[in-house]
Nucleic acid binder design. Structure first.
Lengths: 338, 338
DNA sequence: CTGAAAGCGCTTACAG
DNA sequence: CTGAAAGCGCTTACAG
């Protein structure tokens, strides 16, 4: 590999001048610039990013930190990572992936190595030791998700209030008055601090109260069999239910087939709406599920933008909350008798 | 951040000696080692990985290169990345993700930056310019997947021969004599070079020939609606078919519901076997699909091991081919009349 | 507009 | 067992 020294010799200049044209950081006369560019082309020069990082104290590497044991991150998880990596590349950065535990020690350790200029933190909890560790480290970071009170901390997240409110409005306008909400259930204690679930539940309760509806919520493990069982349970205990809203991607198809197996027609007797999910997931069911699409890729892109913005001294961008967008499928219809 | 110089001063030694104990690279007397370790603890010293990389000419960063536009990589793609990142971390490496185009120029450019010690290349084609570029770069690499003739190139891949053979054996033993194979179809020209598809088709043809069966193969786009249409087509044109093998994760549930909508009972009238997929995908269908599980995470782990093996001068590990493993669900049964 | 030089924080022969 | 010193390949004041 040719170095700057090689280029400088060939062009008959100092390496400083080569650096100036490579980085376009100081004025250089057209003549010498041309000589240098010719030399670079002839030698196939590429600047060594490690040396640049050490000298400039900026590695131009970002980290994407996500929970190591997170199996919930399926297709959506890949969407975060690929969109974030793409955006980072577009802006001249690299993205490393850091599977980290929920304890902050591991993250602090990684940060201390000095490899990255900043961190994008995924799957943030309402109270999150990793966030505290990042604040303490003074390294720039951005959250995908947010703590209980994220004011002042750069973040992007799904707008659960708007998403749930839009979902309820949609179902309510279809005439549904008894709506069940199937959420994710998990034994792990930290799950009580899982923002998406907590925020969606609060929004559901509020939305139901405003409409004078009962807020029926059921937790369900994250697989199809549990979804089937949950559907049966709802039908047995709350036979008046005409619509089920689901925020549990892996159980949604199970809820559907559980209902169908119980002799319920979807959407004639029962509407199903799967929220915070992807078109692909909805399309795999039969009938195709109506969904509210999660803005997964947008969040990855925005998270990186928020971080790079800080690194490059742009005016601190506002936190962004993006709602999921309704994409009706075949599983929602007017309530029976309407 | 404390540097080695700080530690050395505090311990009253040279920075060389500090380096020796940090890296455990030369014998140091117990007494001085203790002083140094105490100093490190007091200062909270962490070695700067960028400086180490520059001095040692090893960054201990690996790249995972995958096709930028690849939307096929859903949950399985995340499995590759997370398992690879975890393995890299276990062995003291970082993993950067590189979304790259199919042309080799982008990859060569990234390699030339000197950021990584090696590359794990995903979604390798039978003839692949990126592989040629990596060979030319002389940078160590490992493939997940393989070219047409990968002898001498480190790789891990699914053993499509064994997988398809096992699938056929399973169906044949259940009495099925007319088996259709639904594969992925795509307009892109490079898809003709997509190894998994080509190898599976060859294996299917061979297996059918050996058993005196007709090798019925149908291409299908990668979504559920196309799967439904494909099921109808098979039923209409080949009414004797009693089993469908599917290597098209996103269409599998569609094939199932297409068959059911046509009045076919699964598995009584028709068996369905989805190969090279995940338990999660199979479980989302009703009835639960019998699958052959893709060893996605194992491939990610092995790919990293293969790469690190080269970097650390271990004897060149053999390429590894892993078969998918049969996990019967509710969608396969003896052929009708058996 | 251009260059000489210090320095980023380590590793690694080399010498003792 | 330990240290002085060169060097990894750049960037960046500073001087001219």
């Amino acid at each position: 590999m040719a170095t700057m020294r090689d280029v400088a010799e060939r062009a008959g200049v100092s390496i400083a001048t080569v650096s100036f044209v490579v980085n376009n950081t100081k004025p250089v006369s057209a003549a010498t610039r041309e000589r240098i560019e010719a030399a670079m082309a002839e030698l196939g020069f590429q600047r060594n990013v490690v040396a640049r990082a050490l000298a400039s104290r900026r590695t131009r590497i970002l980290a994407m930190a996500y929970p190591a044991l997170e199996h919930r991150l399926g297709a959506a998880g890949m969407g975060f990572v690929t969109s974030a990596a793409r955006r980072a590349a577009e802006r001249g950065y690299h993205l490393v992936v850091w599977p980290v535990g929920n304890d902050a020690a591991e993250l602090s350790d990684l940060v201390g190595q000095g490899l990255v200029d900043g961190v994008v933190l995924m799957e943030v909890l309402l109270r999150d030791a990793r966030v505290d560790a990042l604040v303490a480290s003074r390294l720039p970071f951005a959250m995908i998700g947010r703590t209980e009170n994220p004011a002042g901390l750069p973040h992007v997240d799904i707008d659960f209030d708007v998403t749930v409110e839009d979902a309820l409005t949609y179902l309510h306008q279809l005439g549904h008055r008894e709506v069940a909400f199937v959420t994710e259930g998990e034994p792990r204690a930290t799950f009580r601090l899982y923002g998406p679930k907590v925020r969606a539940e609060r929004a559901f309760e509020r939305g139901c109260a405003e409409r004078g509806l009962e807020a029926l919520m059921v937790e369900c493990e994250q697989h199809a069999a549990a979804g089937r069982e949950t559907a049966r349970e709802i039908l047995a205990r709350h036979p008046g239910t005409t619509a089920i809203m689901i925020m549990n991607e892996h159980a949604a198809s199970g809820v559907l087939s559980g209902a169908i197996r119980s002799g319920v027609r979807v959407p004639d007797d029962m509407s199903l709406l799967s929220i915070v999910t992807t078109r692909d997931m909805g399309a795999m069911a039969d009938p195709v599920l109506s969904i509210m699409r999660s803005p997964g890729e947008e969040l990855g892109t925005l998270g990186v933008d928020l971080l790079i913005g800080q690194l490059e001294g742009e005016p601190m961008p506002e936190p962004r909350l993006l709602p999921c967008v309704l994409e009706p499928g075949e599983s929602t219809a007017p309530a029976p008798g309407r």
